[in-house]
C-alpha cells in the first residue's frame, strides 16, 4: 500500500504496529517463563513473572493512548480504521494473556519431587507442560500471522485451538480422577486445574487474535463455526464424593 500523504499519520500507524509487536513478544516471554517456573517448581522465577506483568499492563495503557490519539487526530478509515481498532483489541488481549501467565506463575507448587511422585503428579505436570507448549505455539504462530497479515496462517491457528480444548478436557478428567482417589493430591491437583484452565483461555485468546487478523485484512468477521472440543463429561455428583469421605 502507498504511504500516507500525511507522513505523521503513517508514522503513527507504524508506531502502533511496533508497540503491538513488542507487547506480543513480552506476552510470549511471560507465558514461556511461567511454564518454566511450573516445570522446575522455581518460585523465584515465578515471582519475577508476577512482577513483570506490570510492564505489560503499562504498555497496554500506552498503546491505548496512542490508538485513541490516532482515532481523534487522524480519523482513520477503511483498512487504517480496522487496523487501529484491531490494535486496541489485540493489546487488551495480550494484556489478558499476561494476566493468565501471571496466574499460572502463582500456582507454582513448592512441592518436593518425592511428594509429587507419591501422588503421581509428575505425569500430570508433563501433560500440563505439553498443553503449555501447544499454547505457546498457538500464540507465537498467531502473532506471526498478524505481523505478516497472513489470513491463511491465522485461520490455521484458529482451527487448531480444538487440540488445546481436547487436551484440557482429558486433563480435567484425569485431575478429577486423581483428586477423587488421593486426598493428598487435592491441593496440587487444584493448582494444576487452574494452570490448565488458564492455558485453555490463552488458546482462546490466540484464536481471537486470529479473528482480528482476518478482520483487518478481509474487512469481515471470521464466521463463528470454529471447531470446539467435546463437551466435558458430567462432573461427579458432589453427594457421591461426600459419601465416599464419610464411609
Amino acid at each position: 500500500m502507498a504511504p500516507h500523504i500525511v507522513s505523521a499519520f503513517e508514522s503513527d500507524l507504524q508506531e502502533l504496529r511496533a508497540r503491538l509487536s513488542e507487547m506480543g513478544g513480552l506476552a510470549e516471554e511471560q507465558l514461556s517463563e511461567s511454564l518454566d517456573a511450573v516445570r522446575r517448581r522455581d518460585l523465584p522465577l515465578a515471582r519475577r513473572v508476577i512482577t513483570k506483568d506490570l510492564e505489560l499492563d503499562q504498555r497496554e495503557i500506552a498503546l491505548e493512548e496512542l490508538a485513541v490519539r490516532t482515532l481523534a487526530l487522524r480519523q482513520p478509515l477503511a483498512q487504517d480504521l480496522r487496523e487501529t481498532i484491531a490494535a486496541l483489541k489485540i493489546a487488551s488481549t495480550l494484556e489478558r494473556i499476561g494476566d493468565l501467565s501471571k496466574s499460572i506463575a502463582k500456582r507454582v507448587s513448592p512441592m518436593s519431587e518425592t511428594d509429587l511422585a507419591a501422588i503421581g503428579g509428575e505425569r500430570l505436570n508433563n501433560s500440563i507442560l505439553g498443553m503449555g507448549q501447544l499454547a505457546q505455539t498457538q500464540l507465537s504462530d498467531v502473532l506471526d500471522a498478524y505481523g505478516a497479515r497472513d489470513t491463511a496462517a491465522a485461520v490455521n491457528v484458529w482451527r487448531r485451538d480444538v487440540e488445546i480444548d481436547e487436551l484440557y478436557n482429558s486433563l480435567f478428567r484425569e485431575l478429577i480422577d486423581l483428586m477423587t482417589r488421593e486426598r493428598g493430591a487435592v491441593s496440587h491437583g487444584a493448582h494444576l486445574m487452574f494452570v490448565a484452565k488458564n492455558l485453555e483461555r490463552i488458546g482462546d485468546h490466540a484464536t481471537f487474535i486470529a479473528e482480528m487478523t482476518y478482520y483487518v485484512v478481509i474487512g469481515q468477521p471470521l464466521s463463528d463455526d470454529r471447531p470446539k472440543g467435546d463437551p466435558l463429561f458430567p462432573l461427579p455428583e458432589v453427594d457421591s464424593l461426600t459419601d465416599r469421605e464419610t464411609v
Binding site: 500516507h4 478509515l77 477503511a78 483498512q79
Partner: peptide, 11 residues
Amino acid sequence: RTQDYITGRFG
C-alpha cells in the same frame, strides 16, 4: 482506488 482515496493515500 476508493481505499487509497478515503485513507489519504492518493498519489
